[in-house]
Design a binder for these strands. Sequence first.
DNA 1: ATTATTGCAAAAGTTTTGCATGCCG
DNA 2: CGGCATGCAAAACTTTTGCAATAAT
Lengths: 130, 130
Amino acid sequence: MVRYSRQRECILRNLQSRRDHPTADMVYESVRMEQPNISLGTVYRNLSLLSENGQIRKISTSAGPDRFDGFTEPHVHFVCRHCGNIQDMDYNSEINLFDKTSAPFSGEIEGYELQFFGRCGDCLAIEKNK
Amino acid sequence: MVRYSRQRECILRNLQSRRDHPTADMVYESVRMEQPNISLGTVYRNLSLLSENGQIRKISTSAGPDRFDGFTEPHVHFVCRHCGNIQDMDYNSEINLFDKTSAPFSGEIEGYELQFFGRCGDCLAIEKNK
DNA sequence: ATTATTGCAAAAGTTTTGCATGCCG
DNA sequence: CGGCATGCAAAACTTTTGCAATAAT
């Protein structure tokens, strides 16, 4: 049974109020301004719980630590392999990616994650100035 | 400048000869049968190099350590969030996911990764027997 | 009162790195 | 030879966990 906690509430609100895709540590630093005594372990525990609940999304990339997203509507991500930052991408939302799985499949599909990757605008600009 | 190495060759052939999606450690254990003196560090270094070259793919999931794929043609993955295993999915390959990015975008897109996740057939079966 | 949740710190697990040695070109 | 790649081991990082104390119901 899940009980209310001030810390979890604060973490959830923090994620819902931003549109970047922070790491656990970034959430920790940010939430610490309101809850100075919160511990990093608590942040990790709540991020796990919230993402299992579907209240937030956990995003794993091949560029750095996991990131978290308070925006749970279906959308796709662009991951910069240079700086690790993630941005939401405009994407034709009429496409239902599920429909395209053609073959019989023995598992149970719960969701999907579509990531485009490459180099973000900022990193491209920095590169040119070198 | 990249030089030939017996170890790298062996790692690449190993990945190309299998259709599962091993972790670095699984590759290490497997390659060790041919190259008993190879070190785990060398495996990591070469997996990085090969995936930067595009000769293999690195797959990060929210279920366990990174996995590697010697099959580089476009295809999509199913990730079991219970056991962490990955399988290739049959998917309507006529869909070009790139085409669906509608808005102007300042970054440079190099590729994509589409993952479906849930519980695989094996894990569902085990669950029923409990 | 009961027990989920926390803070703290230690541990676990994965990946990277420094350095002397070995091997490719 | 010159310098990239390796083996080994230590270090760096991210994430999880054990435990006693705290707080929610």
